[in-house]
């Protein structure tokens, strides 16, 4: 043991871990992600047909998908979809919903304020922080770059 440096040990231990089933994982991510997006397209078309404009359709689609992600999380189905689909379940907006709903449910036992409300963002909080920050930067950069024109 002493004759093995930490680096050597870490390298050796790394080799002991079985490799992920790359191809199967990619295929499942493709299928699950693809199906969720196709369903999103179906909702988009439905909303367009009802005469909404592009912005309202985008907002409406997001709200409906977030609701479905939340409901499937509540019913205990989304974690199983996530286990099969991996990134295919995490990356669509339904996965964002799952990341908010699952800690909210989990921490219900610690009450409505410090449990549900404050733990709701333990996974998805960074998404909002970086999303809002970078969008404001984009807006300001746009102003700086177009002012001279």
């Amino acid at each position: 043991m002493e004759n093995m440096t930490n680096k050597e040990y870490q390298k050796y231990a790394e080799k002991k871990v079985p490799k992920p089933t790359y191809f199967k994982n990619m295929l499942m991510a493709f299928l699950v992600g693809g199906i969720i997006c196709t369903f999103g397209q179906f909702i988009r078309n439905l909303l367009f047909k009802s005469g909404l404009d592009e912005k309202a359709v985008a907002g409406g689609t997001a709200i409906i998908l977030v609701f479905l992600g939340a409901l499937l999380t509540g019913l205990g189905v989304y974690d199983k979809i996530g286990k099969i689909g991996g990134a295919g379940a995490a990356i669509p907006i339904t996965g964002f919903s799952n990341a908010i709903v699952s800690p909210a449910m989990e921490h219900r036992t610690e009450g409505l304020i410090f449990g549900v409300a404050s733990k709701m963002f333990i996974i998805a909080g960074p998404v909002l922080v970086y999303g809002v920050t970078s969008s404001v930067l984009v807006g300001i950069l746009y102003l700086l770059l177009t002012k001279g024109r």
Binding site: K55, A58, G59, G60, A62, I63, V66, F67, A70, L71, T73, G74, L75, G76, I93, F96, S97, I100, V101, S102, A104, M105, E106, H107, R108, V116, A117, M120, A124, L128, G131, V132, S135, V136, V138, G139, I140, Y142, L143
Partner: peptide, 30 residues
């Protein structure tokens, strides 16, 4: 507008996640 525009455009999704998350935590148990 650079400050308000981003969240305004995505408010629907964010509000939905918060409200439905809250409701689900009341209705369902993990």
């Amino acid at each position: 507008g650079a400050f308000t525009g981003g969240i305004t455009a995505t408010a629907g999704g964010i509000a939905a996640a918060i409200i439905f998350g809250y409701i689900m935590s009341l209705v369902f148990k993990p």
